[in-house]
Amino acid sequence: MKSTSHHDERIAKMIFGSVYPHYVAKVEKKGRTKEELNQVIEWLTGFTENRLQKLIDEKVTFETFFERAALHSNAQYITGIICGYRVEDIENPLTQKVRYLDKLVDELAKGRKMEKILRVS
């Protein structure tokens, strides 16, 4: 499945803070915690919980969110299908980063062990 420029632009302009509560609800519904979610986000982006809250308060877009992030060097090992797209094949770098995050949230919600989610060897 190939994403369109309209799709990529829509993702870039979405406000991270408007999606974050959905991430929290998804993982909590499956018995995981907000703290675990924040740990996963920190692993991917380098954002501490305080920094994450500041970005939410600033109402940053996903574009700005990932511009400010220090993506983990093992992020390239995030593979699989999320939202109908194979994450390793997504051509737009920003859309791929957003889908990396979606994939990690999905893995957390599905009960995957934290060391597997964080790609610990």
Results as ranks from 00 to 15, higher is better:
K2L: 10
K2Y: 06
S3H: 11
S3Q: 12
T4C: 12
S5Q: 14
S5L: 15
H6M: 10
H7G: 07
H7M: 14
D8Q: 05
D8I: 05
E9V: 11
A12G: 00
A12V: 04
K13A: 10
K13M: 11
M14A: 15
M14T: 14
I15S: 03
F16E: 05
G17R: 08
G17V: 07
G17F: 09
G17Q: 06
S18A: 07
V19R: 13
H22S: 13
H22N: 12
Y23D: 08
Y23P: 05
V24K: 14
A25K: 15
K26G: 03
K26P: 01
K26C: 04
V27A: 13
E28Q: 15
G31S: 05
K34E: 15
E35R: 10
E35K: 14
E35L: 09
E36W: 06
L37P: 01
Q39E: 13
Q39T: 14
V40S: 04
V40L: 02
V40G: 00
E42W: 08
W43G: 01
L44D: 04
T45K: 01
T45G: 02
G46W: 08
G46Q: 07
G46I: 11
G46N: 08
T48V: 06
T48E: 08
T48A: 06
T48D: 09
E49C: 00
L52G: 10
L52S: 10
I56F: 06
I56S: 03
D57A: 12
E58T: 01
E58G: 01
E58K: 14
E58Y: 08
K59C: 07
K59H: 14
V60Q: 09
V60Y: 09
V60I: 15
T61K: 03
F62C: 02
F62N: 00
F62S: 00
E63R: 11
F65N: 06
F65I: 09
F65G: 06
F65L: 13
F65W: 14
F66T: 02
F66M: 02
F66G: 01
E67M: 13
E67N: 14
R68P: 00
A69F: 00
L71D: 05
H72W: 05
H72G: 03
N74S: 15
Q76Y: 11
I78M: 07
I78N: 04
T79A: 04
I81W: 01
I81V: 15
G84F: 09
G84S: 06
G84Q: 07
R86F: 08
E88T: 09
E88H: 12
E88V: 10
D89A: 11
E91V: 13
N92R: 09
P93W: 09
L94N: 03
Q96A: 11
Q96P: 04
K97L: 12
V98R: 09
V98Q: 03
R99P: 04
Y100Q: 10
Y100I: 11
D102P: 00
D102S: 09
L104D: 03
L104H: 07
V105N: 05
E107W: 13
E107P: 00
K110E: 14
R112A: 00
K113E: 12
M114G: 00
E115C: 02
E115F: 00
K116S: 13
I117Y: 00
I117Q: 02
R119T: 04
V120C: 03
V120S: 03
V120L: 14
S121H: 03
S121K: 02
S121T: 01
